[in-house]
Every structure is written in structure tokens, then in C-alpha cells.
Design a protein around this nucleic acid. Sequence first.
DNA 1: GTCTATAAATGGATAGAC
DNA 2: GTCTATCCATTTATAGAC
Lengths: 204, 204
Amino acid sequence: MNEITACTPSKRDLIVEAAKKLFLEGGYGTTSMDALAAEAGVSKRTVYSHFDNKESLFGAVMVGLCSETGCTHPSILVSDTPPEQALREFASNMVGLVQAPEERDIFRVVLAESIQFPELGEAFWSYGPEPAKQLLTAYLSEQVKRGVLRIDDAATAAMQFIGMIKWPHCMPELFGVGTPASDEARQRALDQAISIFLEGTRAK
Amino acid sequence: MNEITACTPSKRDLIVEAAKKLFLEGGYGTTSMDALAAEAGVSKRTVYSHFDNKESLFGAVMVGLCSETGCTHPSILVSDTPPEQALREFASNMVGLVQAPEERDIFRVVLAESIQFPELGEAFWSYGPEPAKQLLTAYLSEQVKRGVLRIDDAATAAMQFIGMIKWPHCMPELFGVGTPASDEARQRALDQAISIFLEGTRAK
DNA sequence: GTCTATAAATGGATAGAC
DNA sequence: GTCTATCCATTTATAGAC
């Protein structure tokens, strides 16, 4: 009940923090409850007094992570914002996945375990990609209605734009190939994506 | 040495087939050598007579899968092909990931284990995405040189186009959300992606 | 609630016979 | 090469004292 948990973290918080760290590093299978208790600095019995079993602990922690690090787009995509600026602001919030190692790990672990934990995939999607898609879709639809853009399927176009800005750097990083791109390179790629998408959808 | 293995599969083939199935279903951690031997119909000792340990078996099988199901683009992107046709043919070969369940599983498992098995991520990338990217990059560069397209960074543009055609259907399927899109929906999305990309890169 | 100690089961890997 | 049987470490989960 006490919201100030940073000073005197409860055992439960210690467990959750340790679970976050280890599950994100090693996934579900390779993370043992022994290691988890040791990392948290508590006994295993204490872990089991707070969580029924390994599955429920994993589910709770990962769903929590999804909701914490999910889409945090403010209402930046007001309809009056010109498309180039709107897309740039949207994309700037989107590239987070690549830069923050934690988000990359969440992506990887959720994807890996979404077969055995279907609720994980759904939680991740509903907190992250889905609201972002909805936001951009609404903005694009409005611009189409206003005659600024010309798009057949705004929802698909939103996903296509997101794919443009995510794929080039996100995928290599996830697979651990190549060297991370510089900030300037990312910026140039983003500029090009916005340029292509805008030129390709601008009403004649 | 006998290439006709379908009639009388060797024990080794049985092991490899079982490993493919179980590793793709459950990943590395949750797949036990007991279950694998049972699935193959051989004893565990036979498994260990063909492969040193679980790691080497996993690596061998997964790298083999990557090379088998990797990019199979023929040399369709000859420079004289008009862009719309070239992109359509390229994209048609690309969407395989979404449709074939096995490729989706490979993607998922490789991504999940690429931390503990770095060579996996590299193998997957070098057999699949990299050659596809190279092929499209070369084609785009040639069209830029010919004055047909106008693109600053052809390599990044290639990845951006791939992102456009992959992301909208690939990601939801990987996370197990929503219902698989119909063939018509995929076709419409592909048409829209090609249209946006071409309009956005066509030389004035 | 928390700890130490342990139960019960399963994991990877091996021994020795054939 | 192949099998049955087994070793040993580790894992999840629990018992009982404090």
C-alpha cells in the first residue's frame, strides 16, 4: 500500500526485480528459481509465498513489463499537425525498441515464449504495437478525409510505415548481426522513410 | 552417402527430423533429449553417438534449417525489369515467412536463442535476409543510376521496403494475435506497399 | 513471513552388453 | 552402432523450525 517502495523495497519487490532481470536475460526455461531467489537475496520459500509457481511469476512479471514499457505516445498526433512533423514525432517515439536494450529483450522473450504463454503475446501487443497502430491509423484516416493524403487502407498503411522505420535497424539488432547504426545513420534512415511514405501517399 | 534416404531413413536422419520438430515447437530449453530420442524412436545412447551433446545437435539442426529455408530468390531482379513488376516478384518471394508455419517457427526460435547461440542469428541472417537485401539493393541502385528511381540510400531503402511488406502481417502472426489475413487482404496490402514505395521513390 | 533443509522429479550424459 | 540401465547434477516445490 505504501507507494514509496524505493527506499525500503519489500521482499516482493526484490523478487520481482530479480525476476525481471533474469527472465529478460535468459528467458523462461534457463532461469531457475534457485538463481532467482539468490539474485533477489531471499530464500526460495519466500518466493513461493508470494507467487504460486514459476509460471505465474513469469506471467505476472512479463505482463507487467509489457504494460510498463508499452506505447507511451502522448496525443501528439493531433489532426492539425502537418504530416511530415507528425510522422517525425511518431517515429521518434517508435524507435525506442532499438535503442533501449530492455525493450529489445522484452521483445525477444515475449516472442520466444508466446507459444507456451499465449497471454504474453497478447499483452505485449495490446500495450505496445496496437495503440501505436491505432494512433497512427486515426491520424492517417483524418488526413485522407481532409484530402491531404491519399491512402486506400489507412490501418495497413500505418503498419507499413512502422515496418519501414523498425525493420532496417531493429531486425539486425535482434539477431545480433552487424554493428549498431550511429545516431546520424538512424536519422538519415528515418528521414528517407518519411520522405518515401509521404511522397507515396500525398494527394495529387 | 546414399542420397535416397526417404525409403530407409538412417537413425541419424530420424534424430535430425525429430530434433527439427521438437526444437521448432519448444525451443532449446524445454526440449529434452529424452523426448527427442522418444520422438525419433531411438535410444538416447544412439543420439549421443551421432552428436556430441545437446548444444551441438541444436546448432547443427538449426543452422541446417536456416540454410534450407533461406532466401531462394532466383535472379529475377534483372535490371531491365520495370520497377513495379520487379518489386512485385520480389515481394511475392518474400512473404513466405508469414505463410509457411515452419519459417515462422524458425524465425521465432532463432531470435529467441540468438543470445546463447550467436552463430544461429548470423547463419539465419546470412542465408535469408542478407541475400534478399543485397539483391534488392543492387536492383534499386541500378534503377537510380538509370534515372528511373530517386533514392539516397538504396541499401536502407531495400530494408524499408522489406519492412513494409513484412511487418503488417508478419508481426501479428509471430505474436499470435488476431486472425491470419486472407490472401486477398495480403494482396491488397502488397499492392499498397508497392504503390507507396514506387510513388515515393520515382524520379520526377 | 522468512529461513534451512529436503523431497520428488527430471535433466544431460555415460557404462557396459550385444 | 545400438540398446538397457544408471549416474549425477539440477530443478521445482514443499516441510518444519523460528
